[in-house]
Design a protein around this nucleic acid. Structure first.
Lengths: 218, 218
DNA sequence: ATCGACTATGTGACCAAGTCACATAGATAA
DNA sequence: TTATCTATGTGACTTGGTCACATAGTCGAT
C-alpha cells in the first residue's frame, strides 16, 4: 500500500491505526480497460473503493434492455457492492472498467469491522449512498420520460466536446438514455435533415447548438 | 417520549445516554391518514423514523406521470430524508400517509450528532438505505419493462386478499406499475373477456388464479 | 490492394403502449 | 333525487420499440 492509499482511506474515515492493529486489511488492485469487475450472480467478497480511473455499472432489465445505472470515479465507493454486502445478496448488476482502474479492496469481514469501529467511515459511505440515490431517482425520471428527443438532445449537449462533437456510437447513446438503437438512428436522421447536426460513424457533430437547445428548454 | 420509543431508538443504535446528556432530542408526531408529510421543494428540518402506520413516497416525473418510489412501514427511517439531509438539498419527492402514522423526528443538528457518536446508528441507516436501493433498482426494472400485462398480473397476484379480490382503483394500479390508467382499463377488459377476472369499481375479483399466473411465468 | 469479418448504421413493416378527448356510470352528500 | 364527485370505458391518434434485413465503414491478414 502506498501512502496515497492510506491518505485516501483516512479521508474516508478509516484511521490508519485500524490497519496497524491488523484489524483491517486492504488490497490494491489494478484492472485493465474494458474488464468486467463483477457480473450478475457473482457473490461479493470485498468492499471496493476506486483510487483511479472510471467504471460503469449497468444492468440488463427483464425486458432485455441494458441501462446505465451510474458511473464510479476516483474516491467513489461502490454502492451496489455495499448494498450486496449489507443484504447478503448476490450482485444483480454488472461493472465494467471504462479506463484502466486502480482500486482498493477491503475484505468483507474487515469491512464490517471498519463499519463498527468508525462512525466516520459509515458516514462517508452513507454520503456516497445518498448521492447515488439522487442519481438513481433522476434515472427513473429519465427512463419514464417518453420524450426521447428531449433525452437525446440533452445528452448531445452534455457530451459534446471542444470540437462540437459527441464521440459515441448510436448504440452507446441508446443505452445511456434508455431506448433502442433504431430509435436513436431515426431521431438523429431527423435532426440531420433539419441541419442541426451531422451523424457519422461513431460520432455526432453538432452544427447548430441553438436549435439543439430549443428541444430541451420546452 | 414513551419507553417503547426509547427501545426503538436504542434498537436503531441510538444509546439512551445520548438523550440523557441532551446531546440529542427527538419529538414524537402523530399524523392523520392521507396527509402530506413532505412535498417537492420543501426543505428538511428533521430525520424521520416511523413507529406505527404506513406511508408512501412517490414522485411526479418530468413527463407528468406519478410513480410510487417505495413504502415506509414501522421502524423504517426515511431514505429520501436522509439523502436530502446529507446532500443539503430540497425534497424532490412527496410522502403521503396511507394510514394514521406515528413518527419520531430528530432535528437535523441532532441527527448529525447521533451519526458522529454512534457507528451503530449509521449502520442501521446504511442498512435501510441498501434495502431501498434494491427496491429502487427493481422499480427501474419494472418501469422499463414494456410488458404491461406481466406487471399487471404480478400486481394482481401479489395484492389479492383472502376473498381473491384486489381492492384498488385502476388509477392506483396504474401508478403502482408505472403506466396510464387507460392502459390498465384495457388490459383488465381483455382479462375479463377471457374469464380470468371481474373488473368492478374500486376492485378486481380474481376468478381463475391459474390462468392469471400463466401470464407471469413466461 | 483486396478480401473477409466485424461493427455501426439505415429502414420498412408491424405492434404495443401512451395520450387526448369525451362519454358513461357508480357513489355520495345536501 | 339531484348535483357532484370519482371511477371507468373507448375511439382515434402518436410515439416508441421490435424484428428482420440491407448497407456501409473499419481493420487486420494475406
Amino acid at each position: 500500500m502506498l501512502k496515497s492509499h492510506f491518505d485516501l482511506l483516512s479521508r474516508m474515515g478509516l484511521p490508519q491505526t485500524l490497519f496497524e492493529e491488523k484489524k483491517v486489511s486492504a488490497n490494491v488492485l489494478s484492472i485493465d480497460e474494458n474488464q468486467v469487475v463483477f457480473s450478475p450472480g457473482d457473490s461479493c467478497g470485498a468492499f471496493l473503493i476506486l483510487t483511479a480511473g472510471q467504471l460503469r455499472v449497468d444492468m440488463t432489465t427483464r425486458s432485455g434492455r441494458e441501462i446505465l445505472l451510474y458511473r464510479m470515479k476516483e474516491n467513489d465507493s461502490c454502492v451496489i457492492t455495499t448494498s450486496v454486502l449489507l443484504n447478503h445478496e448476490k450482485y444483480y448488476a454488472r461493472a465494467i472498467t471504462e479506463t484502466p482502474v486502480d482500486a482498493i479492496a477491503i475484505p468483507t469481514k474487515d469491512f464490517f469491522t471498519a463499519l463498527n469501529e468508525s462512525a466516520e467511515f459509515a458516514q462517508v459511505i452513507l454520503k456516497n449512498y445518498s448521492q447515488k440515490m439522487s442519481t438513481l431517482i433522476q434515472l427513473l425520471d429519465k427512463v419514464t420520460s417518453k420524450d426521447i428527443l428531449f433525452e437525446l438532445c440533452t445528452l448531445l449537449v452534455q457530451r459534446c466536446d471542444a470540437d462540437n462533437t459527441v464521440k459515441m456510437t448510436q448504440d452507446a447513446i441508446a443505452t445511456e438514455i434508455g431506448t433502442a438503437r433504431e430509435v436513436v438512428s431515426r431521431k438523429l436522421s431527423l435532426l440531420e435533415e433539419e441541419g442541426i447536426l451531422l451523424s457519422k460513424r461513431g460520432r455526432v457533430e453538432i452544427i447548430d447548438h441553438r436549435r439543439l437547445l430549443k428541444n430541451i428548454s420546452m
